[in-house]
Write a protein that binds this DNA or RNA. Structure first.
Lengths: 189, 189
DNA sequence: ATTATCTATAGATCTATAGATAATGC
DNA sequence: ATTATCTATAGATCTATAGATAATGC
């Protein structure tokens, strides 16, 4: 049942991708190693040839998800720098994003989990958060550097908080109102 | 080993209080029924005389935490309506709050957990979130009702997001910068 | 007599490991 | 020969329940 070295590397990547999705959807404690491996098309026991522990996988899954998220933002900046800020905000504060946490913002979906766990996953959040602030700062039109930095941080905080709140309530109208209100507020600034 | 009817009611309350604290600190899946009961000074088996299931306790714990949180805000409004808004913001965006999730904002600490679970806990979040928005709206000085509503929602979203981000990063300076930036932004508006 | 709590345990699930298997890669 | 994966299982933990115990409250 052995596979090629190349295939094994692909399998490892698939485990990370599956974990990045399912940890965001169900939380670190909400999905077990056996289920993760089944979702990757592999058996439970094979996991420990790729990772030392479930927590190690969490660290890699966070890095992967944060990296992908940043890449999406960078692509918007590359394609149209002038419209990147509204595009990022507009794209983030949608019901589509709200209903697909598995492919969405890692901070909104896994930030609380990462904060609760042993410290392993937090350096990745630190680095990615710094990069997200820097990127947003660069997109803000005017103001002194400190002002733009403050605004970049506040903008991202409002986005993350809106997503957490929109997911926590049971009322579709209220949930959409939250997304729309924060979107309108951030776009008018 | 039986206790009085009155004491039994107190024991039930203590279980809810302990759960409201530990679910916020460790997440729904991060603490078991046995440990919750031990923290309440009771044994594991006694739990099911008070609650039908762990999930039922989660619902009550969310209601309790959300109610307490709102009470704190209302107390600030009652004591000094003019200064209540800055007092709430100032009190929320602190390292003290960040480092004590067990007694802090339920949305920032349990919102993601409640969203992931079966729907039971979400009505409580819906109701409490509506009340929090209304309260903040009433504290905003000027503007048309729709503007104040939008600003109330954006303010609370920024607070929740700042707390989630501040807890997820590993760098004390960055964490404090997040809290301070959002605080400054919200207080200057 | 009722009932709040306790002890003990069933049954499920979870992380991690040991040893077998079989295909790769030297 | 090496090694990626599989089968099987150990040991821990988790939710929930059954039955015993003993103090309350009629």
């Amino acid at each position: 049942m052995k596979v090629s070295r190349e295939q094994a590397a692909l399998n490892r990547e698939r485990i990370v991708e599956v974990a990045a999705k399912l940890f965001r959807e169900k939380g670190y404690d909400g999905i077990g190693v056996a289920d993760l491996m089944k979702n990757a098309g592999l058996t439970h026991g094979g996991f420990y040839g790729h990772f030392a522990s479930k927590e190690d996988l969490m660290i890699e899954a966070c890095q992967h998800a944060l990296e992908k998220s940043l890449e999406g933002w960078r692509a918007k900046v590359a394609s149209d720098p002038q419209r990147a800020l509204p595009a990022i905000i507009d794209n983030y504060l949608t019901t589509r994003h709200r209903d697909q946490p598995g492919g969405g913002c890692p901070a909104a979906a896994m930030g609380v989990d990462a904060a609760r766990m042993s410290p392993g996953a937090r350096p990745a959040f630190t680095k990615a958060t710094q990069q997200q602030f820097s990127l947003l700062e660069g997109l803000l039109p005017d103001g002194a550097p400190e002002e733009r930095r403050q605004q970049a941080i506040s903008t991202f905080a409002a986005m993350v908080g809106a997503m957490v709140l929109a997911r926590s309530v049971d009322d579709e109208a209220l949930s959409e109102e939250i997304l729309d209100a924060v979107k309108a507020q951030l776009l008018q600034e």
